[in-house]
């Protein structure tokens, strides 16, 4: 059995600057015969000499030749990754963690609720559902960003919004003079969608407080809590449940999560500093 802690080097083939502090890079997975993952899973990425960070995979699971991550530069390691250019090597290991229940959502309405960079781990699920769009009922996407300048994947969002089989709403906390869209928390958008609540699957990713309020709102609309899923975040060093850093109640987020059914996550989210 291979050592789950051992990294492999992958080459950056493309870098895109998404926002002021967020960037996306594609890694070439062809030399290793493609990189297979399920939407919602993450990798540990290593910047030479600086360290590793857990980063969700944000690319298309049906295109295993390209491995895509969207990263917000907030600490030394993510800033080190930000400094890398096309052709540079990155250390990668994974994929780790539990996926979004895309298969369970077949035949049901789906609502995707994303806050900030929380859209990145949800994008593979969106790709996956769009690739077999007819297998799902309504597909609704609610996305909240801090400001219009913080909106991720803007062109793609435009494209999705243009589709007749996708309902997509974007809101920002603070608009600017050119902003004509919604202002306010993403929770307020949820009532706008015409869902069949009792047969809806909800996928939520963003700050914990956002997920708490959004799930409460969805429950209020009649979405069963057993069909609401959230993606949690904790400190991670190993990715395989042996370093202890990502403990959340009786679980390790790296292997029992990051995607949890709300029924498991809700009791834990409410306890401060757990």
């Amino acid at each position: 059995m291979t050592d789950a802690l051992l990294l492999e080097s992958m080459e950056i083939t493309r870098v895109r600057h998404e926002t002021r502090d967020t960037f996306t890079f594609d890694l070439d997975a062809r030399p290793r015969g493609g990189f297979r993952f399920a939407p919602g899973q993450f990798n540990m990425l290593y910047a030479f000499g600086l360290g590793e960070v857990p980063i969700s995979i944000s690319g298309d699971p049906l295109k295993p030749a390209v491995l895509t991550h969207t990263i917000r530069a907030v600490g030394p390691t993510t800033r080190g990754l930000e400094a890398l250019k096309k052709g540079d090597g990155v250390g990668v290991r994974g994929p780790f963690g539990t996926p979004w229940p895309v298969d369970e959502a077949q035949g049901k309405d789906v609502i995707v609720v994303a806050g900030g960079i929380g859209l990145a781990p949800l994008r593979p699920a969106i790709y996956s559902m769009l690739s077999r769009r007819q297998a799902f009922g309504k597909l609704c996407i609610a996305y909240g960003a801090r400001t219009p300048a913080d909106i991720l994947y803007e062109k793609e969002i435009e494209r999705w919004r243009g589709r007749i089989d996708v309902d997509l709403e974007v809101t920002v906390d603070r608009g600017d003079p050119d902003w004509r869209g919604h202002t306010g928390v993403v929770t307020k958008l949820l009532r706008r969608f015409e869902l069949t609540p009792e047969s809806t699957v909800a996928l939520l990713c963003g700050p914990e407080v956002m997920m708490r309020f959004a799930s409460r709102e969805l429950e209020g609309l009649g979405v069963p809590s057993a069909r609401i899923y959230v993606s949690m975040e904790r400190n991670m060093k190993c990715g395989v449940g042996s370093c202890g850093h990502c403990q959340l109640g009786p679980s390790f987020v790296c292997k029992d999560g990051p995607v949890y059914p709300l029924t498991k996550a809700e009791p834990l989210m409410g306890i401060r500093e757990l």
């Binding site: 360290g51 590793e52 042996s242």
Partner: peptide, 26 residues
Amino acid sequence: CFCTTIEDFTDLDGAGAERRRRWDSC
């Protein structure tokens, strides 16, 4: 208690680095 962390060290010439695991504490 089994918790560990992984630490990074870089050689002085910048060409090499190493990753070391050590006991950590919650």
